[in-house]
Computed example of a mutant assay.
Amino acid sequence: MKKNTNLSLQARNRLIRRNRNGKNRKKSPKKEQKDKKSISDNPYNRNSKKTLKKIDLPKNFDLHENTDTTLALMCQFRKIVDKDNPRLQKLNFDDIEQINPSSALMLVAELDVWNIKSNNRLSSNHKTWHADIKSLLSEMGLFELLKLPPLENNSSTNDTTFLKFISGKNSEGEKAKQLRENIERVIGKSLEQKLHLFDGLTEAFTNTTQHAYDKDNSKEFDKWWITASYKQGDKKLIVSMYDRGNSIPTTMYTNKKWFWLDERKNTKHSELIRIAMETSFKNKNTRTKTKEPNRGKGLKQLLDFVKNQGRLTIVSNKGYCSFQVENEKLTTTQQKELKYPLQGTLIEWQINV
Rank of each mutant, 00 (worst) to 15 (best):
Q33H: 09
E181H: 11
K147G: 07
R121A: 14
S270V: 12
D62V: 04
A204H: 06
L201K: 05
T227G: 10
A11K: 10
T227I: 09
Q232L: 13
I116C: 08
K147W: 03
W224V: 05
F162C: 03
Q33T: 14
D112R: 00
T313R: 08
N19F: 15
N170T: 15
K31I: 15
L151N: 12
E271Y: 02
E328W: 00
R244P: 00
D68G: 03
T331C: 04
K53N: 08
Q210F: 15
N352V: 12
R121C: 09
A72E: 10
R311Y: 15
E97G: 13
T51S: 03
M1D: 05
H211Y: 15
S240F: 00
W225G: 01
G296Q: 06
N283H: 10
G310A: 06
F259H: 11
S280W: 01
S247P: 04
L63C: 11
Q343K: 10
R17G: 08
Q324K: 10
P150F: 05
L142R: 01
P150V: 13
D214A: 12
D159P: 14
H126F: 15
D68E: 06
M252R: 01
N158I: 14
T69N: 04
L52F: 01
K30M: 07
K223G: 10
L52Y: 00
E337R: 02
N125K: 05
S103P: 00
F143W: 04
I347M: 03
F305L: 07
I226G: 06
F205R: 01
S123A: 13
V315D: 07
H126C: 14
K194F: 11
I248F: 01
N125Y: 07
I347Y: 02
D199R: 15
R264H: 05
I314L: 06
N66H: 08
P29H: 03
L151Q: 15
S135W: 02
I166K: 01
Q89K: 12
D84W: 02
D199I: 15
L142S: 05
L15T: 07
D94E: 13
S171H: 11
N42A: 03
G188V: 11
N158V: 09
W258S: 10
S322T: 09
D132A: 08
F205M: 12
D262G: 03
N285V: 14
R18W: 02
S190W: 04
S280Q: 07
I314C: 07
K90H: 04
N85L: 05
M241N: 06
K265V: 00
P149K: 09
R274V: 13
I351C: 02
K50F: 14
V325G: 04
I275R: 09
R18N: 08
S156I: 08
L63W: 05
E271H: 07
H126V: 15
I351G: 03
T157M: 14
I55Y: 00
I16V: 13
T70Q: 00
K49Q: 11
S280G: 12
T157Y: 10
W349V: 09
V353E: 07
Q301G: 05
E263L: 07
